[in-house]
């Protein structure tokens, strides 16, 4: 019975419209990140006085943030799984783990950037670095936004429980989180790995 109720919340007309709208927002975001990747690839070789990608990146630490974000995506999927079972506390728990991992990711990224800046790789040093910070910064900002958004939703989940209002919101937030993860997979491959090849 309880499985039904969350599904019913998600199948409600307004919820279905919200989810569809969110998919079109994802379509728009694909263009946004596509253009940012295009900019990055166009100026990748224009390193001027600054370091080249190969000199700059430290793969081991990037690997760590990648694992952190991938795991957060997994815990997010688990949270939605419990949401479907209408298990309030478990949903809450796994979303909490998700945002903590998200915070860890942001922390790692800030540390990485400060390290680069200390090495003299500033945003204005070269076109490559400008595009790099623009792309990574936009992604990092999305992660931060996701963390804040999901925390607000968790407060609502705590206060109101799983109902017609909270269930679709949490589901959409999970879509957002997975999408950020997809973008990170592409960043990891195109920016970091190929930058090291």
């Amino acid at each position: 019975m309880e499985t039904m109720s969350t599904q019913m919340h998600l199948n409600h007309k307004q919820a279905q419209m919200n989810i569809l709208a969110f998919w079109f927002l994802i379509g728009a975001e694909v263009v946004v990140f596509g253009c940012l990747f295009g900019i990055y690839l166009a100026v990748k070789s224009l390193t001027g006085q600054g370091p080249t990608p190969n000199e700059l990146f430290k793969l081991n630490e990037i690997m760590l943030s990648t694992v952190v974000l991938l795991t957060s995506s997994f815990t997010c999927a688990i949270a939605v799984y419990f949401l479907n079972l209408s298990k309030k506390l478990l949903t809450l728990l796994f979303f909490l783990i998700t945002i903590l991992l998200g915070l860890a990711f942001i922390g790692l990224e800030i540390r990485e950037f400060t390290l680069y800046v200390e090495e003299g790789a500033k945003i204005s040093t070269s076109a490559f670095l400008g595009a790099f910070y623009l792309l990574l910064g936009t992604h990092g900002f999305h992660v931060l936004f996701g963390v804040i958004w999901i925390s607000l939703l968790l407060v609502q989940l705590w206060l109101k429980g799983i109902n017609q209002e909270t269930a679709p919101k949490l589901f959409i937030a999970s879509l957002y989180w997975h999408f950020i993860d997809v973008i990170w997979v592409i960043i990891f491959t195109i920016v970091y790995l190929i930058g090291k090849v």
């Binding site: 998919w23 079109f24 379509g27 596509g34 253009c35 990747f37 295009g38 900019i39 166009a42």
Partner: peptide, 19 residues
């Protein structure tokens, strides 16, 4: 929605690389 976005993104990427 995704394919549409990817199509535009791909066009942008290809022609920015060809720049």
């Amino acid at each position: 929605s995704l394919i549409g976005g990817s199509f535009v993104a791909l066009l942008a990427i290809v022609f920015l690389i060809l720049l």
